[in-house]
Amino acid sequence: MMITILLFAHLQETVGKDRIELPIEQLTVMELKTALKQTYPLLELDHVMTAVNEEFARDNSKVTAGDIVAFIPPVSGG
């Protein structure tokens, strides 16, 4: 099972793809951000919100294999 990470807006352009899959069983949002920053030029992850399974989550929220994590840069709809 994988953790699926969705990227939008400038995050998507920075990484060059809109999703990343990681074979990890469980970790926190903060640990996930740290892991991603080691592989990708995503320093701004410290400044974006996170959603786990389509609900806003905190840095200490748990992420488990099968979950979908989305990084949500400040929004600009309307």
Partner: peptide, 14 residues
């Protein structure tokens, strides 16, 4: 409604 859209709805404008 429009104020909240600009706060919490994950939509981005380029």
């Amino acid at each position: 409604a429009i104020e909240r859209i600009k706060q919490i709805v994950p939509i981005w404008k380029k």
